[in-house]
Design a protein around this nucleic acid. Sequence first.
DNA 1: TTTCGCTTTCTAACGACGTTAGATTTCCTA
DNA 2: TAGGAAATCTAACGTCGTTAGAAAGCGAAA
Lengths: 209, 209
Amino acid sequence: MSISTRRARERANTHERIIEAALHVLETEGPAALTIRRIAGDVEYSAPVVYQHFANKEALVLELVAHGHRLMLTRFLEAAQEADVDLRMRRAASEYVRFAGEHPHLYQVMNAPAIDADERGRVAQPAVDALKELLNTWSARHDVVLADLDEACETLWGTMHGIASLGYLSNVGNDRARRLAEQALHAILLGWRAEASANDQGRREKMQG
Amino acid sequence: MSISTRRARERANTHERIIEAALHVLETEGPAALTIRRIAGDVEYSAPVVYQHFANKEALVLELVAHGHRLMLTRFLEAAQEADVDLRMRRAASEYVRFAGEHPHLYQVMNAPAIDADERGRVAQPAVDALKELLNTWSARHDVVLADLDEACETLWGTMHGIASLGYLSNVGNDRARRLAEQALHAILLGWRAEASANDQGRREKMQG
DNA sequence: TTTCGCTTTCTAACGACGTTAGATTTCCTA
DNA sequence: TAGGAAATCTAACGTCGTTAGAAAGCGAAA
């Protein structure tokens, strides 16, 4: 038994090393440098060895995407330590954009259209759930009844992604993008609260009239 | 003179046909199918001919990006026909997302990280200016003094791009994305107005106290 | 200890890509 | 109608992802 377990351990180790090497190349040299031969060279193997661990390049890249989302979730959960709900949302937005700025290439691959939408959805689910919960407690805290929590979630997610994108699509730097994200979040939440209180007022007037 | 002008005309014609062929391939079959050989074949030439009209593939793609932005600007200006400022903004947002949904591959290339940020900024400038003007009249209409018009513009742009991205990044369809965009825009504008009126009230109280 | 067989790993290759050099053809001019 | 410039093509280079088949390594049975 000992020998096959050792083999399995070595196999798993190589698997891990390939992912690490790929991640390193991606982060330091960008997606164009991320070739199978390069990765194989970095782990001191020939190219075909990579295919014993991953069906194809896409599968390997998907692992990097998953890794990226786990990393992002960690950040998110750190921000969730914050006691105050409003500050928590603000920090979450800020950290999201900061992540995009600190790992630009990884972030770009995480959100590349080439990645299958279902797969991306799968690996991003935990982060989406965390956002959903956060948004839920926020709405409870401010007595704001959101018409559709999922839609509100998507709106926030999309907004943050769009503004984070500005960091590399335009020449808006990351610091500025972070400020923009906080402002946008602030405006949206304020808007939702304004709408909610307007609805309340409308309902009250109807009751009285 | 007649002969060299004819040559120039033919040259320009070929140039145009290459762009059209490239655009057609991109829109109907996606970026993966957009190869030099394929484009050349579609205009019934051999591959190297393309290089007499474009320095390299990137330059050709940049023309497609520019074309896309012109198309988008057209939509934007159509939406700007709307008399009411608020409806105009709403329609602009809606049309932006609709464009992304109707030309998904073109939109993706327009916002691909591989495109140089400066070049993108150059071709997108007219649209940004139009948005800036629209936002300006909106803020005048509602007596909202935006702290920084450029930042507000970037925020809106980023937000719309992010939500439009949901159309292909996640499984949010284009119809839903368009609704989300309208809602997000509505919330942000409401938030800005709420903030502005809060500032006004604060100032008034200070004057009185 | 030596040979067998399985696993691991490598070399070589395929087809497609962007791109370039050099041969070939086309077409105007003298 | 011959010469030369312009236009165009064929062939190739180096790179990519990927696969087939040879070579090597290594634990177990004779």
